[in-house]
Computed example of a mutant assay.
Amino acid sequence: MAKKSSGAPTTAATVVLQRAGIRFTPHSYAHDPAVTDFGAEAARELGIEAARIFKTLMVTTDAGGFGIGIVPVDSLLDLKALAAALGGKKAELADPKVAERKSGYVVGGISPVGQKTPLPTVLDESAAGFETILVSGGRRGFDLELAPGDLLAVTKGSYGSIRRG
């Protein structure tokens, strides 16, 4: 069952994880509205190495749809590798307004869990090297720590080599 801490917000992501019986730990911090590098802010504020904190990026592919790539915040998304993992040849980042509308979350707080429109999801294979990773919990300043395998189970995702740098 989920491990709750006092004052942790309830988001679509936490509801989905609780319903699925997936164990997670919520981590909240005071988000600075002037900060736009959300991943670096999370690593700094939570005191967790950036390689364990993953960002969720929505793309469009030439295969005719949208998809989700999840990579460490200290890396870049390899768009060509993600496109291939999603059955295409090319991908580009989705327009932020489209990403917000399809996910139901605000940019900087887009969680791979509990999105309004479930999309094919690929988690960078580097996540497999950690017992737990952190992903956005559905709000800026709120992350969820969970096992990579549990993240893949709840998103019906797969591992892939999708990062650069």
Results as ranks from 00 to 15, higher is better:
A12W: 02
A63D: 04
V107A: 12
S6C: 14
K55F: 00
A42I: 07
Y105D: 05
I53S: 05
D124T: 10
S136E: 02
L144D: 03
L152G: 00
S6E: 15
A153K: 15
L76Y: 13
R52P: 01
T121P: 00
K156W: 01
F24M: 11
D150N: 07
I110W: 02
V98L: 14
P26R: 12
E92M: 13
V73E: 04
R164Q: 15
A81L: 10
D95G: 09
T56H: 04
I48W: 03
L86F: 03
A81I: 08
K4I: 12
L86W: 01
L144K: 04
T121L: 10
R23M: 11
F38K: 08
K97H: 09
E100A: 15
P33Y: 09
P33W: 08
G160A: 13
A51Q: 14
P96S: 11
I22S: 07
A13K: 03
G21Q: 13
A128T: 10
A2V: 14
S28Q: 14
G21C: 12
G69C: 09
G64R: 06
A13C: 09
A81Q: 09
R163I: 07
S28F: 01
V35F: 02
L79V: 08
Q115E: 11
G21N: 12
G149P: 08
K89Q: 14
V35L: 11
T121A: 08
Y105R: 05
G157R: 06
A2D: 07
A84Y: 00
I70Q: 04
A94N: 06
A128W: 02
R52A: 11
G165V: 10
I110H: 02
T117C: 06
V16K: 14
L79G: 09
E125A: 14
A84T: 13
G39E: 05
E41K: 10
M58W: 00
K156V: 08
K3R: 14
T25P: 00
D95H: 13
V98G: 05
E45P: 09
G69W: 02
G7T: 10
G64P: 00
A20N: 08
S28R: 14
Y29A: 06
V35G: 00
K156M: 09
A128K: 15
R52S: 06
A91M: 06
G157I: 08
S126F: 03
V16R: 12
K80P: 05
G109N: 09
T36N: 15
R19P: 00
A63N: 07
L146I: 09
K55T: 06
T121G: 03
T132E: 13
A81C: 07
T56I: 10
G160V: 10
I162G: 05
T25A: 11
T36C: 13
G137Q: 07
R23P: 02
E131N: 12
A83S: 07
D124E: 11
G160H: 03
A83M: 05
V71M: 09
T61C: 06
S126I: 11
Y159P: 01
Y29T: 00
